[in-house]
Design a protein around this nucleic acid. Structure first.
Length: 670
DNA sequence: ATAGGGTTAG
């Protein structure tokens, strides 16, 4: 592409030289650029009609070759050459260089250069191109004071009617924590286009006013003046963190009605599903992209990987890895970290480790991912070794890294190690523990049978214990049959009226065991009042590109007959191996009986039977469930793994059970 | 010859 020195256009061929300049976009092109510059000198004389555009092109080219001093030198020589009427031409040079600085995120430098314009004399006025850039840098540096100054200068000059200026002012105010001022600018605009609406939607989103962002989005769609675009989708995304179902439907409808869907629209829709735990919807959307021939980029893939992990959609996740390799997207730490997590979440610790080992550089997130991968699989010792290795590399663990190591300790019952990490987190690293850390500690202590200590821990913690903290204690009390503290935990949990439906079952079971039937009734009525439906135990499995869901006692599946037949056959066989379904009732819900009065078959058993029927011998069985696994199913799964010689990978809401030949990676500690 | 809103990982 690029002419070497000897193939440079002749000095007289200005057009060819300028084309060459414009094509210099990377540091490697710098020699050609310098050579072309040298041959262009006569053209750059102010008397030449093309002098101004040529200088602009040179500044742009130097800037995109990361040669900012050279770009600056061209600017300065322009300043000394232009006078009076020609100054507008120099303003363009400033604009171009400021633009280069903002795209390089050098916002302070951009603002310095902006501020240096007017002291040079009355000829160097910033114009309607300069102000949007300056406001953008104010927004990026959260410099409200300067932003206000710039905006008032804009108003004095009468440039505030310019929509580019207005849009950047909206964004500046919102990002500097003044959404109402942003709205005032928006409201005062005579004519609004898509970008005006996007700026306002994004403004409210960024300022944390999610409902208002959604309202503006809806108003915009209802107006039907112009159609939402990719910018609209991306702007509403931060406001859709835990969105209402109807709002997600609304956005999806707007997305569906877009005639030309840019990649960012797909990516934003994917992210909205992923952030709202609509994992199946997210994977379906990704599959549709593949079907429609939409070329994914690294953002698409990084967004699609977590839902694959959540669903244990291993074949889709694996395919994404192939796409990443084919498109030569690595090294890319965001993708690699997402890949590790997807593999770990699918129960493929080995693949996660391979990604980790292949990385060229690892940040705290990478280490946290691999630590949590080992932790979830019940390999606490390895998790601790890796965590120590990270410290040895001089990396500073953050709050989330400690959640990972504490969770790893609790999953493996490493009581003393876990306590030590909790102490070092506060004393050595001065990280204030959050509810997640306390939950890990209560879980660690409680399941290690130190129920009293766990309870004391909750009583002395400096923040208000949330439902998860009490839930961890209640869980421990159930395991260790501690009725006294269990009821305290249940009462506290009930007072909080948990959002998580899973706790209600645990709660009412505890009350039932204590014979507190009035409270059982009360729990039910609270659930009814709040319109909370019992979370039906469900398991999902991936077969091919399809995700199959099984519910407790499910008979809707087309293969239902075969599944139950297979299950009967399996349960018959393992009965002789110590399996006795009478012993453990059911953790999920003691009220869950079918019409014949028998306990309904748990969904994970149905899912296992389904996969045994539909996959060839030796294929690992992967099941993801929405509750914790119960003891009965855990034992059944272990024995089934023995008689069928299948690996069974069961992911529940808490961890992963990797079962091989009758032995589970959790060591029966969960 | 230049300007505005906007997507990804633990």
């Amino acid at each position: 592409m690029h002419a070497s020195r000897s193939h440079l256009p002749a000095p007289g061929d200005a057009d060819a030289l300028l084309r060459l300049v414009a094509a210099c976009r990377a540091p490697a092109h710098l020699p050609s650029l310098r050579a072309a510059h040298a041959r262009l000198l006569s053209l750059l004389h102010p008397s030449h009609p093309s002098a101004a555009p040529a200088r602009v092109k040179l500044i742009q080219a130097y800037a995109s070759c990361s040669a900012l001093p050279a770009a600056r030198a061209v600017l300065e020589s322009s300043c000394s050459l232009y006078h009076g009427a020609a100054a507008a031409a120099a303003t363009v040079c400033f604009n171009v260089l400021i633009r280069a600085l903002t795209t390089a995120s050098l916002h302070r430098d951009a603002l310095r250069l902006f501020a240096s314009m007017r002291p040079r004399g009355p000829a160097w006025f910033p114009d309607h191109y300069t102000y949007p850039l300056a406001l953008k840098s104010c927004a990026a540096t959260k410099d409200l004071l300067l932003g206000l100054q710039v905006h008032s200068a804009v108003a004095r000059l009468g440039l505030d009617a310019n929509r580019y200026v207005a849009h950047s002012a909206i964004s500046m105010y919102a990002r500097c924590g003044r959404p109402e001022d942003a709205y005032r600018v928006f409201d005062g605009m005579q004519h609004r286009d898509v970008v005006s609406w996007n700026a306002m939607i994004s403004g409210f989103s960024r300022a944390g006013l999610f409902e208002r962002a959604v309202d503006v989005f809806k108003e915009f769609v209802a107006l039907q003046c112009s159609l939402p675009d990719a910018g609209t989708m991306a702007s509403i995304l931060p406001a859709m963190g835990s969105a209402k179902a109807e709002d997600i439907l609304f956005v999806r409808k707007a997305f569906d009605e877009m005639q030309f869907k840019e990649l960012i629209s797909w990516n934003a829709m994917l992210a909205i599903y992923a952030n709202n735990r609509y994992h199946v919807k997210a994977v379906e959307l990704f599959l549709r992209m593949e079907n429609d021939g939409v070329e994914p980029d690294s953002v698409t893939l990084a967004t699609a990987l977590p839902p694959c992990g959540e669903l244990s959609a291993f074949s889709v996740g694996k395919r994404i890895h192939e796409i990443i390799k084919r498109k030569r997207m690595l090294p890319n730490s965001i993708l690699e970290n997402a890949l590790m997590d997807m593999y770990a979440s699918c129960g493929c610790l080995k693949d996660a480790r391979e990604v980790f080992d292949s990385m060229s550089s690892r940040d705290v997130i990478s280490w946290t991912s691999i630590v949590s991968a080992y932790g979830k699989h019940g390999h606490g010792r390895e998790a601790v070794d890796l965590f120590e290795k990270m410290l040895g590399q001089g990396l500073e663990p953050d709050s989330i890294a400690f959640v990972a190591i504490l969770a790893a300790c609790s999953h493996s019952g490493l009581l003393d190690v876990g306590k030590r990490y909790f102490d070092s987190m506060t004393c050595r690293y001065h990280i204030t523990p959050k509810a997640e850390h306390y939950t890990c500690m209560v879980d660690l202590l409680g399941r290690a049978a130190c129920i009293g200590e766990a309870y004391d821990f909750i009583r002395t913690m400096p923040i208000e214990p949330n439902e998860r903290v009490w839930g961890a204690l209640l869980q421990a009390c159930r395991i260790h049959s501690n009725m006294d503290i269990g009821l305290v935990a249940a009462d506290s949990l009930f007072r909080l009226v948990p959002e998580q439906t899973g706790y209600y079952v645990l709660l009412s079971n505890m009350y039932a065991r204590a014979g507190r039937w009035a409270d059982v009734t009360l729990v039910r009525s609270v659930m009814a009042d709040k319109g909370i439906k019992k979370l039906p135990g469900a398991s999902i499995v991936e077969l091919g590109d399809r995700v199959h869901t099984f519910h407790i006692g499910d008979r809707c599946h087309p293969q239902s007959e075969m599944i139950y037949q297979k299950l009967d056959e399996l349960l018959q066989k393992i009965r002789g191996m110590g399996y006795n379904p009478e012993v453990e009732a059911t953790l999920h819900d003691i009220e869950e009986e079918d019409k014949e009065g028998h306990l309904s078959v748990h969904s994970e058993k149905l899912a296992i039977a389904f996969l045994l029927i539909n996959t060839s011998p030796g294929t690992p069985i992967r099941v993801t469930m929405n509750l914790r696994i119960c003891g009965d199913c855990h034992l059944a799964a272990k024995l089934i793994s023995t008689i069928t010689s299948r690996e069974i990978i069961l992911k529940d809401t808490n961890r992963i059970h990797h079962i091989v030949q009758g032995a589970c990676s959790c060591g029966d500690y969960w």
